[in-house]
Computed example of a mutant assay.
Amino acid sequence: MSAAAPGWALVTGAARGIGRAIADRFARSGHAVAAADVDAAALESAVAELRAAGATAVAVPVDVSDPASVAALAERIAPLAGGRLRAVVNNAAVAVERPFFELTDAQWQRVLGTGLTGAFLVTRACWPLLARPGAAVVNVSSVHGARPLPGQAAYAAVKGGLENLTRALALDAAPHGVRVNAVAPGFVLTPAWQRWLGPPDAERGRRLAAEVAATVPLGRPATPDDVADVVLWLAGPASGYVTGAVVPVDGGLAAQAFRPIGAEDTEGSADA
């Protein structure tokens, strides 16, 4: 994999999970990393590990849904990065699993404020640091952006909006030489996912893990590093002619109409 010329990368939602893996990938490729998250304590721990590994990294606590907090983020980063960012990765997101009819105003606003408005605010605030050839924005979407599951109305609205924001921003940014793309992960083994699965030795955890393995064509969920690898590629010169794209990182999950029925029965009918 070709890496981008070293520079500063901003990663939101960098305290854990996919965001933390992305920050680590950028750091290991020689970039300096501005790691941002609303959880200041977890963020400091993540940045301490990056520094211990020899990386240049700063922790910048931020609430991406708050314009004032995002403005302070950009002001903090600008002098550190010498007025130039190589990449912005909008990864911060929250989810509420609840039927549409039970969603409260506060839940709706929190999910959209973090995952969609947050990406808008961060990219807009950082635009003066990005607006030059070679810079890149990578948004972290989800399979929910195109194929929602029940109980994910707010999250699906965010990811669908984020994918179209990616396309629209790519058009506006192209004259400046800035590329804008997104990744759309499927099942990812993050700490939040592990908590949802429950103890791996428990019956529920084993059952759900087996269902995921049977549903994903490649037979396993992604690791955060799987997603981080593609984000780094989209931010680097090897993808220099790619913009406005949403790249699935889902093991083939979104390529199928639905989980094959009776797939284990090789003698069954092919009629559908």
Rank of each mutant, 00 (worst) to 15 (best):
M1W: 10
S2C: 14
A3V: 13
A5Q: 07
V11H: 07
A14M: 09
A21G: 05
A21D: 05
I22G: 05
R25C: 10
A27W: 04
S29T: 13
S29Y: 12
H31I: 14
H31Q: 09
A35N: 01
A36H: 05
D37H: 10
V38Q: 12
D39S: 06
A40G: 01
A42T: 12
A46S: 14
V47G: 06
A48C: 08
L50V: 12
A55M: 01
T56N: 10
A57M: 01
D63T: 07
V64P: 00
P67G: 08
A68I: 03
A68R: 12
S69A: 04
S69W: 05
A71C: 06
G82F: 11
A87H: 05
V89N: 02
V96A: 06
V96N: 04
A106K: 08
A106P: 14
W108V: 06
Q109G: 15
Q109F: 08
L112I: 07
A119R: 02
F120H: 04
P128W: 01
L130D: 01
A135G: 12
A136I: 01
V138S: 08
S141V: 06
V143P: 02
V143D: 10
A146R: 05
P148Y: 09
Q152C: 08
A154G: 00
A154S: 00
L162A: 02
N164K: 12
N164H: 15
R167T: 13
R167H: 15
A168E: 08
L169M: 11
A170I: 07
D172P: 05
G177E: 03
R179G: 05
V180C: 03
V183D: 09
V188S: 07
T190Q: 10
A192R: 13
W196S: 14
P200C: 12
R204E: 14
R206V: 15
A213I: 09
A214W: 15
T215H: 15
T215M: 15
V216K: 04
P217M: 10
L218V: 14
R220M: 06
P224N: 09
A228I: 03
V231S: 06
W233N: 00
S239H: 05
G240A: 02
Y241H: 12
Y241G: 11
Y241E: 11
V242K: 03
V242N: 11
V242E: 05
A245P: 15
V246K: 10
V249Y: 00
D250W: 10
G252L: 09
A254N: 11
A257T: 14
F258S: 12
R259P: 08
G262F: 11
E264Y: 14
G268R: 14
A272H: 09
A272W: 08
A272N: 12
